[in-house]
Design a protein around this nucleic acid. Structure first.
Length: 455
RNA sequence: GGAGAGGUGGCAGAGUGGUUGAAUGCACCGCACUCGAAAUGCGGCAUGGGUGCAAGCCCAUCGGGGGUUCGAAUCCCCCCCUCUCCGCCA
């Protein structure tokens, strides 16, 4: 969420930011104008409202005084005045709520303002390579994609997964199941023992306001899964599950399945004033992630690159206002360290304005080399959000200088996507005989095993 | 699931209809005392918003929402959450 005061004072900078994010200049202009109008309407009304509230409060106090001094005639007269004011106020207060909500709703769907050093561009083609590490291995005529390797090993099963849950699910068995577990443990251990992150176990189901805090709601509701109920529990065919009397069964409030552990980890500081000396907070968690992939029909349908459910190790940092940019570089290096240790070639890209997520000021994507696809594919995304999420969560700290409180800065990054790391290991470490060599760094997590082969 | 208790400022904890936005203690900040520190004394110290150059003034907020009342932290209703005991359970 952006600061309405900032918008009021810098309307042109907001419009410029929206254009960088690929809004048309007309859309940007009218969105900004709309915000200014809503803001002015709200403040104009608030002034009048508060004036009358002030009079009501003063008159009420006078009534108390009059009654104490036994002047009941005056008390009655004042009561009449207050009653009249109250009548006016009930409408005015409702109006205030309406105006507040209109402004909040408009603010809630505005994306963050890109940092000054983010390249401007329309889509991923305008992303800029920051560095490239490792050399992609020479392709052979037997180089295959991960799902070919996995299926011929007999350890990756899409057909049975589809029987259970439909498309975009995978069943892993044997060595590959263990390899995925090993990858998760390896990453978690790396970040907790070498990078100073605190391991956290978090709920996988969270409230709407938590999803609002990190920016998934209200704009990206379609990308999420919910359990429990919005209006009713829906069966898989979309029909409401009803009681014998035909009423929809309402279980209570719905909970959203987290699309990333960024959501619960970042919200750990929501509605709190964190002491300055506790910053930065660095959290990591290994969790399943759930995504409906509503907008990506037809993309990456083969294999397990894009799933409705996948494991990811997430990194989250909470910092003060001055440290977030440096923390962003640091976090990105922590994520890269995973790939360095696994000896997987990768490149790190600075996302352009058009490719960045809703809440980010600046994002680095780490793309791992996939020989089977003959391409670099995203395996991590590290973003600095400034106070954008903090404002939505009301997460603050007390700065050393100055008085009062300030919003914390939040950062999140994948460290890394476990399912995609599995793919990367399989494709980069595949052998001509169809087996997969286990990277040195993972062997302790595989009981010393050095190779996965069909058996 | 059953029964009970409770949600007040950074923390602890008073407050049951009228200058109570809230006693007191702790923590924190400033000043004094001190060679320095501790102890002590004095003062300050909630959050958000509106307005103003500023000092300030004003509005809202005592888990959330609604109601009673001229007036609600205090009374009533609904909801959320926490704790205790019992039951059940991975």
């Amino acid at each position: 969420m952006l600061d309405i005061k900032w918008i009021r004072e810098n309307p042109d900078r907001l419009a410029e930011a929206l254009v960088k994010r690929q809004w048309s200049s007309e859309e940007a202009r009218s969105a900004v104008d709309d915000l200014i109008v809503k803001d002015e309407a709200r403040r104009a009304h608030l002034g009048q409202l508060q004036e009358r509230q002030e009079r009501r409060n003063a008159a009420s106090r006078e009534i108390g005084n009059a009654m104490r001094s036994g002047d009941s005639a005056k008390a009655e007269e004042l009561k009449g005045e207050v009653t009249a004011i109250k009548e006016w106020l009930s409408g005015a207060e409702a109006m205030e709520r309406t105006l507040d909500k209109a402004l909040d709703d408009a603010l809630a769907v505005l994306p963050n303002v890109p940092a000054h050093d983010v390249p401007v561009g329309a889509d991923e083609h305008a992303n800029v390579e920051l560095r490239k590490v490792g050399t992609p291995r020479q392709r052979s005529n037997w180089t295959r994609e991960h799902f070919e390797i996995g299926e011929s090993l007999g350890m990756m099963d899409f057909e049975r997964a589809a029987k259970l849950s439909g498309s975009r699910f995978t069943v892993l068995k044997g060595g590959l199941a263990r390899l995925e577990r090993a990858l998760g443990q390896f990453m978690l251990d790396l970040h907790t023992t070498e990078h100073g992150y605190t391991e956290v176990q978090v709920p996988l189901m969270v409230k709407d306001e938590v999803l609002f805090g990190t920016g998934q709601l209200p704009k990206f509701e379609d990308d999420l899964y919910f359990v429990g109920v919005a209006d009713a529990v829906l069966a898989s065919d979309g029909a409401a599950i009803v009681s014998r009397s035909g009423e929809p069964i309402v279980v209570g409030r719905r909970l959203g399945l987290i699309p990333t552990a960024e959501v619960p980890l970042t919200n750990l500081v929501r509605e709190e004033i964190t002491p300055l000396e506790k910053l930065p907070l660095r959290y990591t968690a290994l969790t399943p992630c759930f995504r409906s992939e509503a907008g990506s029909a037809g993309r990456d349908t083969r294999g397990m690159l894009r799933q409705h459910q996948f494991y990811k190790v997430e990194l989250v940092s909470i910092t003060d206002q001055d440290s977030s940019r440096d923390e962003h570089e640091r976090m990105t290096e922590c994520a890269e360290a995973v790939l360095r240790k696994l000896e997987l070639p990768f490149r790190t890209m600075t996302l352009c304005t058009g490719d960045m997520g809703f809440g980010a000021q600046k994002t680095y994507d780490i793309e791992v080399w996939l020989p089977g696809q003959n391409a670099y594919r995203e395996i991590s995304s590290c973003s600095v959000c400034g106070d954008f999420q903090a404002r939505r969560m009301d997460a603050r700290y007390r700065p050393k200088e100055g008085k009062g409180t300030a919003f914390v800065h939040t950062l999140n990054g994948s460290g890394t996507a476990v399912g995609r790391a599995l793919i990367a290991v399989m494709e980069n470490y595949q052998e001509a005989d169809g087996s997969v060599t286990i990277p040195e760094a993972l062997r302790p997590y595989m009981g010393g095993m050095t190779k996965i082969e069909a058996r």
